[in-house]
């Protein structure tokens, strides 16, 4: 079976990876690079715990071959806070008590990051729609939605991170 040499830019850092063609970005992130903040669960694009940013867009890393990411820019939960202003989002999740077991939270933060980049002052309905691809079985979502709305308000008054 052929192995493929890939140059992946992850959280601003270049990683040279040699991997089999069938392995997903999620496999490489967790097993090869030790970036275990991105979670693994349904492997079918239903739950969103594996969400990462690919060229700024939220994608399910379980449904993306690592080979598809050659030359593209990936941001994981480990890299999101290094984007500076996005700590606003993590802070809002803490302040709103939006985290219970925590398993869905990395995916939630990544989806919310991509969403707020495009919609700086969203409505509650827009936030709920934006998080439709991220399941949480603990919180009932209300506090997560509150956190994203709060982060939107905060970043509306402060300057959001331009470290992208």
């Amino acid at each position: 079976m052929s192995r493929i040499a890939l140059a992946l830019t992850i959280n601003g850092q270049r990683h040279d990876v040699l991997t089999e063609a069938h392995r997903t970005l999620l496999d490489v992130l967790r097993a090869d690079l030790g970036l275990t903040g991105t979670k693994e669960n349904c492997l079918e694009g239903e739950c969103g715990v594996c969400t990462v940013l690919l060229d700024g867009m939220a994608v399910d890393s379980c449904l993306l071959l690592a080979a598809q990411c050659q030359g593209r820019e990936i941001v994981t939960i480990e890299g999101v806070s290094s984007r500076g202003g996005d700590d606003v989002l993590a802070r809002a999740f803490i302040d709103c008590g939006a985290v219970q077991c925590g398993y869905c939270i990395p995916g939630m933060i990544i989806s919310a990051t991509a969403f707020l980049d495009e919609h700086p002052s969203p409505s509650e309905a827009e936030v709920r729609e934006a998080l439709a691809g991220n399941l949480c079985r603990c919180t009932g979502y209300q506090k997560i939605v509150d956190a994203v709305l709060a982060a939107g308000r905060t970043s509306g008054t402060e300057t959001r991170g331009d470290a992208r």
């Binding site: 690919l54 939220a58 994608v59 993306l64």
Partner: peptide
């Protein structure tokens, strides 16, 4: 169609 993650790809 799906969530944003699916529609983006």
């Amino acid at each position: 169609v799906g969530g944003h993650q699916i529609r983006n790809v």
